[in-house]
């Protein structure tokens, strides 16, 4: 035999490993599904968020959304106004009216960075701008709170007041 038996065995072992890995990659898997929401500043970066804003003046932020549910989904970000100690939990949304909604259909594996412009009319200290992520449940025909949210504490001053 031209090829040594041991050499052939090693080469065959390499082919077996390569074949097994290729088969493992071909078999579809269901990874842990999750949704993500993030808050970005005016320029679309993490950090450097506004902390002091003037009532009635626009506050510009970005909201980042990512869908890894394994399917497309109709998502909605509800922007609400809370305060220190009055923010949502993992199970309960904030009991406050939405100032603004961002509705989008997001495919699996895709993300979106959406600009948000808010105006807070009333001055206040330690106010929380809350961004809740909701998902439309097509079975029940209603919006469901996903338990994901972000918040940003701000102080809102009256127009013309120097700080």
């Amino acid at each position: 035999m031209i090829i040594d038996e041991e050499v052939l065995a090693v080469l065959t072992a390499l082919v077996v490993v390569g074949s097994a890995l290729s088969i493992a990659m071909l078999i579809p898997r269901k990874p842990e599904p999750f949704l993500a929401i993030g808050l970005l500043n005016e320029r679309g970066y993490i950090g450097d968020y506004p902390t002091l804003i003037v009532a009635g003046e626009p506050v510009r932020l970005h909201v980042f959304l990512a869908n890894h549910l394994g399917r497309a989904a109709l998502l909605q970000v509800r922007v609400k106004l809370g305060s220190r100690g009055r923010i949502p939990s993992n199970s309960t949304p904030l009991d406050a009216p939405a100032l603004q909604n961002i509705t989008v259909v997001l495919e699996d594996g895709k993300n979106l960075t959406a600009p948000v412009t808010l105006r807070i009319s009333e001055p206040g200290i330690n106010l929380a701008i809350v961004f809740e992520l909701w998902m439309y449940n097509t079975t029940s025909g209603s919006w469901v709170y996903t338990g994901r949210w972000n918040h940003l504490y701000v102080n809102v001053t009256a127009p013309g007041v120097k700080v």
Binding site: M1, I2, I3, L8, T12, S19, S22, I23, L26, I27
Partner: peptide, 22 residues
């Protein structure tokens, strides 16, 4: 079909490679 082909690859390699090499 692709999985079957990949699974058969080591056997085919073991049988045909020495002959092809020769």
């Amino acid at each position: 079909v692709v999985i079957l082909a990949l699974a058969a690859a080591p056997v085919l390699f073991y049988y045909f490679f020495p002959r092809l090499y020769a």
